[in-house]
């Protein structure tokens, strides 16, 4: 007898829970979606500050210590520097470090970069940092990488570190030229999004 009541109770429960589930899904239908249609609609909120979207280096603060090149797991950073003569005045970075070496070449091959941000953690002057800018796809004339969208969207998406042509050869970013170009044209370098307290201090 017990088994019989269990049997019918199970059947009732199955139907009742199915109907409750249908009510839940019905409540979801007809609601505005939580997704948005990129790239026709830009992202509503900026990404969080720790997002590892693209690497940037402010060349005026670099002391050419080569820590970033040494720690990079894929060896994508090329760094060359010169010793200054004894009579020259030693400039200082914004963080108070003395620039004893003169930076002559700083290239990062973005196609090799794996966005691990090890280099940003060892940089003593915090001139190398990750920014939350993610819209820097390349659009060549012969090979459209980005999806077709309106002209203004395409321009908006190319705004990150697109310097003059000599500052970017394919994927190799020459940060000295990029920094110079950004500061001269007044566009300004992208700021370091991490707050001061979160940066590793030597």
């Amino acid at each position: 007898m017990r088994a019989l009541t269990e049997y019918f109770k199970n059947i009732y429960l199955a139907l009742e829970t199915a109907i409750t589930g249908m009510a839940v899904t019905l409540r979801h239908q007809g609601r505005p979606s939580v997704t948005f249609q990129y790239p026709d609609q830009p992202r509503p909120q900026p990404l969080p500050p720790r997002s590892r979207m693209s690497l940037f280096m402010d060349a005026d603060d670099c002391i050419a210590c080569m820590q970033c090149a040494r720690v990079c797991p894929v060896d994508c950073i090329e760094l060359e520097s010169n010793k200054r003569g004894k009579e020259e005045e030693v400039p200082e970075t914004t963080t108070g470090h003395k620039k004893r070496l003169e930076l002559t070449l700083f290239d990062i091959d973005m196609s090799l970069c794996c966005y691990c941000s090890d280099c940003t953690e060892v940089c003593p002057t915090h001139c190398l940092y990750m920014t939350p800018e993610f819209e820097f796809g390349l659009v060549n004339d012969d090979r459209q990488i980005l999806r077709e969208t309106s002209e203004e969207n395409r321009i908006r998406m190319q705004r990150q570190v697109v310097g003059p042509d000599e500052s970017r050869q394919g994927f190799i970013y020459d940060f000295m030229a990029i920094t110079k170009h950004l500061k001269e044209t007044g566009k300004g370098v992208p700021p370091n999004p991490l707050p001061e307290t979160d940066r590793w201090e030597k």
């Binding site: 009742e16 009510a23 939580v34």
Partner: peptide, 18 residues
């Protein structure tokens, strides 16, 4: 069932920021 599921969230926060 309809009344029991009135709490099903509508995620207002993300909708406001759109």
């Amino acid at each position: 069932a309809w009344r029991q599921t009135a709490h099903v969230p509508i995620r207002k926060k993300e909708l406001a920021s759109r």
